[in-house]
Design a protein around this nucleic acid. Structure first.
Length: 661
RNA sequence: GCCGACCUGGCGCAAUUGGUAGCGCACCACUCUUGUAAAGUGGGGGUUACGGGUUCGAGUCCCGUGGUCGGCUCCA
């Protein structure tokens, strides 16, 4: 029979499988007419076949999925009463969920990993068996979660399910060399031909609880995460990457570099910034203010608490109350005769700034001539986040947003959005992030959570999309991810080691202008409703601070570095010479000091390097005579015999141009 | 919020099976000081997160509270 092999016509025997086609041992599966199949799949005339190698992205997914099966087999051998949840591949690895009587302890994980290595050595074949629903139910009769998946049918199972496919049900058996079936699982496949190919380049990483089918009302299963690779080197690289990421952890660096802390006395998720973190934050904020001013924003201020009425009108108490701190209750005072002397009231800490800015807009009548009206505030908000989700500076209960609300006429919307997006991206680049993609979050049809007419949503989403596309950046759709009041673009930034962080969001809002009955007088003399754009650039200053700390691994560029220059005299007697130079820099606003401590020079260099000071300026007798200094940078490189004027110029230029050194 | 693990000077860690809480860094003092990542000596600092309990005796065992970490759910 004729088939198409990697695009070329190929003559194959009737009943040929992938094993007959591919001699290359690194081919572990194949796509047949676009669908991934086992090598054991029997081909039909006219099939179009492409091999999948183990090191390709699709091959690694199969490897990881097969590794998950081996893990599940090991778990069920060691814990015979355990029941299987789902076990998919994920980025860089896999997980498998189990219902077990007792949560796994680290020792269990080690035993499971050891057993997996033994199973790999047993050279079991992965055998696909296509089954009817009745057969599947019979085979999985002791696996209640699998039975639930069978009952659900594929369309109800989450996207990307590895258990069931639309084509029908199948199980995979792990078959011993003697033909006996060692283990089986309901699975869509495909798999490696043999457990041997799982190899030893895997590692179990951690265990944790996870809700069955991701629903917090369901039972929690025990999930084991692992990673698997096609070579020792790839596994080592991955491990190394994890270690690098751990070294960049802003929580660790925050303590080491004395930037911020979370005193237990204050409460969870509430940070204090120490002087060194404070100066970084101040520089970030100052620069942001300057740029906002230049871009036509106006500065407003609002209080941290408000009576409940405001959040009733805005809808927050209806939609968002779970995320808010409980109210401060002021009781009403009633005199003896039952007359209310003072009305009681509930005050809330604000979780968002928008209602306040709206009240500023409403404080007097507005003309179309004032639009776009751009209000900006570093607004501190408080959100009662669940205790389990708090995470360093990236997920806190008290934060300051660099928040702006733009009131525009419908005609101005597209142009203003374009400007805002450009502004956001420009500013992020100045802070050193320059690898972005955009996400367009839109409404989900039929979901009642989204307010407003389909027509308005469509026009808003289309406008956002046009603006996003025009930016030239990659655009990822996120259907159903919109806020209840309107669609949004979010800017995702990749950091120095390739992790992505959600940064800025730009949201369109038709709901609040309606709720607050906002209006302006148009050129026609009639009243019109403005559209609101919500926009936070850093997301929150705290989160952005955390992201920048990790992005730079604490090596902040000179303009952000808490201490920009430290003078290190070769011996005490040159301290004065450096002090004079430092004074000159100080006059230019440089954060500089000379280390006159009685430590030796080498020790000072070590200490300030560990402190990530961008410029160490050394001077000894040679320098004093020649009126020079020498530079030592954080990477250990040095530039010697630099004249004082040139040194000053180099330092100021690096600071002013916001470059990294 | 849920599941699990963890909590010992500022930081990182020790402390035999329950038996006098130690070390390194940092800090303070003194001595020393000439070229690019750690000079030497001495000193101060802890109610072992907090509150109960068991015990002759608790950092260690038990219970509760708080916090942290890893996930789940949720989100800037």
């Amino acid at each position: 029979m004729k088939i198409l092999l990697a695009g070329d016509t190929h003559e194959a025997n009737e009943g040929a499988t992938g094993f007959d086609l591919f001699q290359d041992r690194s081919v572990i599966a194949m796509t047949v007419n676009g669908s991934a199949r086992d090598l054991a799949h029997v081909l039909s005339p006219g099939d179009s076949v492409i091999g999948i190698t183990i090191q390709s992205p699709a091959g690694l997914e199969i490897l990881r999925h097969s590794t998950a099966h081996v893990m599940a087999q090991a778990v069920q051998e060691l814990f015979p009463d355990s029941k299987l949840g789902i076990g998919p591949y994920i980025t860089d690895g896999f997980y498998f969920d189990f219902d077990v009587a007792e949560p796994f302890i680290p020792e269990d994980i080690r035993r499971i990993e050891k057993r997996m290595k033994e199973l790999v050595g047993k050279s079991q074949r992965f055998r696909r068996v296509e089954v009817t629903e009745a057969e599947a139910i019979e085979l999985m009769k002791n696996e209640p979660y699998k039975l639930e998946l069978i009952g659900l049918k594929s369309e109800d199972v989450a996207e990307g399910s590895v258990e069931v496919s639309p084509d029908g049900l199948s199980v995979y058996e792990n078959v011993n060399p003697d033909g006996s079936v060692a283990w089986m699982d309901l699975c869509r496949g495909p798999h490696l031909p043999n457990t041997r190919q799982v190899g030893k380049n895997f590692s179990l990483l951690r265990s944790a609880a996870a809700y069955w089918r991701g629903n917090e009302n369901n039972k929690q299963l025990q999930r084991i995460y692992g990673t698997a690779w096609d070579s020792r080197e790839a596994l080592d690289d991955f491990t190394e990457k994890l270690e690098q990421a751990a070294k960049r952890d802003h929580r660790k660096l925050g303590t080491e570099l004395d930037l911020f802390s979370f005193p237990d006395e204050i409460g969870s998720g509430l940070a204090v910034f120490h002087p060194k973190g404070g100066i970084i934050r101040k520089v970030m904020e100052d620069y942001s203010r300057d740029r906002h001013e230049a871009a036509g924003y106006e500065f407003v201020y609002s209080p941290h608490i408000t009576k409940s009425n405001l959040f009733e009108q805005s809808g927050h108490l209806g939609w968002y109350s779970e995320g808010m701190f409980p109210p401060m209750k002021l009781d009403s005072e009633i005199d003896e005769s039952g007359v209310v002397k003072k009305q009681g009231a509930d005050y809330y800490l604000k979780p968002m700034n928008c209602p306040f800015h709206i009240l500023i807009f409403k404080s007097r009548s507005r003309s179309y001539r004032e639009l776009p009206l751009r209000m900006f505030e570093f607004g501190s908000v408080y959100r009662y986040e669940k205790s389990g989700v708090l995470h360093g500076l990236t997920r806190v209960r008290g934060m300051t947003q660099d928040d702006a609300h733009l009131f525009v006429s419908p005609e101005q919307l597209q142009e203003e959005l374009t400007k805002v997006l450009q502004f956001v991206l420009d500013l992020l680049r100045d802070y050193g992030l320059n690898d972005f993609y955009l996400e367009l979050s839109t409404k989900e049809d039929g979901n009642p959570k989204f307010v407003g007419s389909d027509e308005v949503w469509k026009s808003a989403s289309d406008t956002l999309e046009a603006v996003a596309v025009a930016s030239g950046l990659e655009l990822v759709p996120d259907p159903g991810g919109a806020a209840f009041y309107g669609p949004k673009i979010s800017v995702q930034a990749r950091d120095a080691i390739g992790r992505t962080w959600q940064m800025s969001t730009i949201q369109l809002d038709f709901n609040l202008p309606e709720r607050f009955d906002l209006e302006y007088v148009g050129s026609d003399g009639d009243k019109h409703q403005p559209i609101m754009i919500h926009r936070a650039l850093f997301g929150s200053i705290e989160r952005f601070f955390g992201v920048l700390t990790e992005h730079y691994a604490g090596h902040f560029p000179p303009w952000l570095a808490p201490v920009q220059v430290v003078g290190v005299p070769v011996a005490d007697e040159f301290g004065g010479y450096l002090e004079d130079f430092a004074k000159e820099l100080k006059l230019e606003g440089v954060r500089v000091f000379v280390d006159h401590s009685d430590a030796r020079m080498q020790k000072k260099i070590r200490d300030h390097t560990l402190d990530r000071v961008p410029f160490l300026i050394l001077a000894g007798s040679r320098d004093e005579e020649a009126k020079t200094v020498s530079f030592r940078y954080r990477d250990g490189s040095q530039v010697n015999d630099v004249s004082l004027s040139e040194a000053k110029r180099m330092i100021l230029e690096a600071i002013n141009t916001k470059v990294q050194v």
